[in-house]
C-alpha cells in the first residue's frame, strides 16, 4: 500500500509524517490524549476482568478437582475441607506446607489426597499428588508440576513409572530408589528425578501418620 495511492488521507497534505497527525502537540492535548486512551483501556479491562472472573475460578477449581479425582474417590467437596500441614502441625497458607484433601464416602473419611512436593528434583521443585488410604496404602501417585529435562526426568509423569507405587504400604515398601537400597525402580538416566518423587511420597505418608496420631 503505497502512500501515494491514498491522496485523500490527511497526512498527504504535508510530506513529513511527524507533522501531520491530528491535534496540536500542546501539553494539555498530550495529557488529554494519553490520559483518555489509558482511562478507556482501564475501564474496558475492568469489565473484561469481571466477566472472566468466574470462568477463571471455575477453571482453577476444575483443575484441582481433576488432580484429586485421579488419586482418590470421593462424594464430598475435598476443596472446601482442605487443610495445610507443615511439620505435623496445621498451618494457614504456607508455600512449604502440604495440602490435605479429605476424601469422604457417605460422610466418613476413607482416604486423603495429599499435595506434596520435593525440592530435590533435577531442576527444582516437583509437585506430586498422592492418594493415601487411612491405613497408609498408596492408592495412586500423579505428578502435578515439574521442570525436569524433557525426555529424561520428564518420564516421572509416565504411568510406567508411577504404577509401581500403586497399592504399596510405605512401611513395608522402601520408597528409596534401588540405587540407594530402596525398592523404587528409578528411570535410567533420571535417578535424581525418581529419587525426588519417592521422597515426596514418603513425606506425605509421614505427615499423614503424625496427623492421625494427633487426632
Amino acid at each position: 500500500m503505497e502512500l501515494a495511492e491514498k491522496p485523500h488521507l490527511r497526512y498527504q497534505k504535508k510530506n513529513s509524517y511527524t507533522k501531520m497527525a491530528g491535534p496540536k502537540s500542546s501539553f494539555l492535548n498530550l495529557i488529554l490524549a494519553l490520559g483518555s486512551v489509558t482511562l478507556l483501556s482501564a475501564f474496558s479491562l475492568g469489565y473484561v476482568y469481571e466477566w472472566t472472573l468466574e470462568p477463571i475460578a471455575t477453571a482453577k477449581r476444575e483443575k484441582q478437582l481433576r488432580a484429586i479425582n485421579a488419586v482418590v474417590e470421593f462424594d464430598n467437596d475435598p476443596l472446601a475441607e482442605a487443610f495445610s500441614v507443615l511439620d505435623g502441625r496445621r498451618v494457614e497458607d504456607d508455600p512449604n506446607a502440604l495440602v490435605f484433601y479429605p476424601a469422604k464416602k457417605a460422610g466418613n473419611i476413607e482416604s486423603y489426597a495429599v499435595k506434596t512436593y520435593s525440592d530435590q528434583g533435577y531442576s527444582g521443585r516437583i509437585e506430586v499428588m498422592v492418594g493415601l488410604k487411612l491405613d497408609g496404602m498408596i492408592r495412586e501417585v500423579q505428578i502435578l508440576t515439574h521442570r525436569e529435562t524433557p525426555g529424561l526426568g520428564s518420564k516421572i509423569s509416565a504411568p510406567e513409572f508411577l504404577e509401581q507405587f500403586v497399592n504399596k504400604y510405605p512401611d513395608k515398601f522402601n520408597l528409596k530408589v534401588t540405587k540407594d537400597g530402596g525398592q523404587v525402580d528409578g528411570i535410567s538416566g533420571a535417578t535424581i528425578s525418581s529419587r525426588a518423587v519417592g521422597e515426596a511420597v514418603q513425606v506425605a505418608y509421614d505427615q499423614l501418620q503424625i496427623i492421625k496420631e494427633n487426632e
Binding site: 490527511r10 511527524t18 507533522k19 501531520m20 497527525a21 491530528g22 491535534p23 496540536k24 502537540s25 500542546s26 492535548n29 498530550l30 490524549a33 494519553l34 486512551v37
Partner: peptide
C-alpha cells in the same frame, strides 16, 4: 489515529 497528537503516538 487522527485523535492522537504525534508526540504521544507510541505510548498511546
Amino acid at each position: 489515529k487522527h485523535l492522537i497528537p504525534s508526540k504521544v503516538r507510541i505510548p498511546s
